[in-house]
Computed example of a mutant assay.
Amino acid sequence: MTWDDLKFYGYGLLRLTPSQLFEMTIQEIFDMAIAYYRRRDEEMDEQMHILAWQTSHIMNSSGNYKKTIKPSHLYGGNDEHEGGSSNGGLTPIDRDKKNEQLAALEEKFNRKN
């Protein structure tokens, strides 16, 4: 980590004054940066829950869906801290496995490329 990086975190991200920055240890700066990012993630998660709630009400009031759309169907939330995956429950697969699954679906539905 360079001085420019430390100044970026101290002045820009954490909004410290020069005297505050140079009185702190590097570990304190890292701890504050981690806390900042965690707080930002929680705020974004809360905003996304509100948006999912609002969107589900709009979708349900339109009358275009047979089943009720719940906010949890639209946004699962940030369950990274609870040990879940942070990528929406998606698991990456390699290209060969994808092609195998695609071929199986094409065979099942009698569709040729």
Rank of each mutant, 00 (worst) to 15 (best):
E100F: 09
A52T: 01
Q54T: 14
D4P: 04
R15E: 14
A33L: 05
Y37W: 12
I34P: 01
S19G: 12
E42Q: 12
T55I: 13
I93L: 07
G84K: 13
E28T: 00
S72M: 09
L14F: 01
N78S: 03
K97R: 12
L16N: 03
G88F: 05
K66R: 12
G88M: 06
L14H: 02
M59Y: 01
L21N: 02
F22V: 13
H73Y: 08
G12T: 14
T2Y: 01
D96C: 07
G10I: 11
D96T: 14
H73E: 10
M48S: 06
R15K: 10
K112R: 07
N110L: 01
D96S: 11
K112E: 12
Q101G: 05
Q20C: 03
K97S: 15
E106Y: 06
T68S: 07
S85F: 01
W53S: 11
K7M: 04
S19C: 10
M1I: 08
S56T: 02
N113V: 11
F109L: 02
N113Y: 07
F30V: 15
K112T: 11
M32V: 15
R111P: 00
M44H: 09
S86D: 13
K112V: 15
G88L: 05
R39Y: 12
S61Q: 10
S86T: 11
Y11M: 06
G76W: 04
L90F: 12
K7T: 06
E46A: 15
E107R: 02
E42D: 15
T17N: 04
A104R: 04
E100M: 11
G88H: 10
L14Y: 00
E28P: 00
N64F: 04
E106D: 07
M59A: 02
G76R: 07
Y37M: 15
D31G: 04
R111H: 08
L105G: 05
D41I: 07
I50Q: 04
E28D: 02
L13M: 09
D31Y: 04
K98I: 06
N64H: 03
N64G: 04
Y65E: 08
W3C: 15
A52E: 01
D79C: 07
F22Y: 13
G84R: 10
Q47C: 02
M48C: 04
P92V: 14
G89Y: 03
M44C: 15
I26S: 03
H49Y: 05
E23F: 06
N78T: 05
L74C: 09
S85E: 05
